[in-house]
Design a protein around this nucleic acid. Sequence first.
DNA 1: GTCTATAATTCGATAGAC
DNA 2: GTCTATCGAATTATAGAC
Lengths: 188, 188
Amino acid sequence: MKNAEHQTKSDRTRAAIVAAAQEVFAAKGYEQATVRDIAARAAIDPAMVIRYFGSKDALFARVAVFDLKLPDLKAGDGNRIGETLVRHFLSVWETDANGGFAVLLRSAASNEFAAKKLRDVFAGQVLPALARVGGTARAAERAGLVSSQLLGLALCRYVLKLPPVVAMPRESIIGAVGKTIQRYVTGR
Amino acid sequence: MKNAEHQTKSDRTRAAIVAAAQEVFAAKGYEQATVRDIAARAAIDPAMVIRYFGSKDALFARVAVFDLKLPDLKAGDGNRIGETLVRHFLSVWETDANGGFAVLLRSAASNEFAAKKLRDVFAGQVLPALARVGGTARAAERAGLVSSQLLGLALCRYVLKLPPVVAMPRESIIGAVGKTIQRYVTGR
DNA sequence: GTCTATAATTCGATAGAC
DNA sequence: GTCTATCGAATTATAGAC
């Protein structure tokens, strides 16, 4: 008897593999993460990982998805768009530290599939949201500058773990980087 | 007869391996670059790479060095520190696209040795240079913010190849990002 | 100095018993 | 559904002939 409420053993195994894959891919990147690592983390046999997802590539594709869930920037205070964006960005990371974004950022520099996925997030989520505010003039350039600062921040704070960037209080970052994003979005 | 002017055959082979290693490591990252790739690029036998450098790790360590060669920021116009820094940063990359910085940035997200090297560049080169200007108050935080923007820019323009960031003219980047760096360095 | 041959691992993936 | 056993390919690194 299968229905939406009852979780079969297969469902639980599948979910355990996905969770383990997120953790291992986010921690080591695509190449250094092995099917054996993921299986060990999920406390199952390595053969099960392949059986459930077909290949390491397919499992990575399943886990390398990311929804920024950007709020409507036109709804709030136009002078606080930068602050809102940085705050939202930090929240997304910190509430889901092993989620799709961590997986993508960890692998994107040396894995073309992950790099393309990140470019898709830019084109499909960041660019449209920013084009709605600050006018459409040079929207792509403005979105590119915003992305360079936000990706650089995530890289330094969560991946490279640059000590002063790790130590900075959340509100200090929102203040300092928020002003930068605000200028990029509105052109001052 | 060996002296500083005469380049032996060994020297030429060694130099060819280093050049090939820089290209391959910068293009594919540490894990995906193989000794066979590097040997093929240098048009020699894979065994020679190990013979000359001992191991893949040792060769990577030889190539993963980076000198930012930062100018004295106190000498120039205090209102153009940001512009100067961005211009210098872009020049360093573009005149040495396969140099140590490209090698480091490509591998740092998934290789702890490369990540530590990047942190060392920050602590040994960026932080001291910025501590000399804008006062010593919170110099580490200011240097961290500067690094987040510059690393993010390099990541988007040269590694991820985010289209609008790749397409932006050099001078536009220097103008827009320079203002950001200037604010981070001087605190407005 | 250079290359052939290969050792020793490690990986993703498969076959088949239970 | 799950696991044991293993295959075949790829890797770094070494030994030794030339």
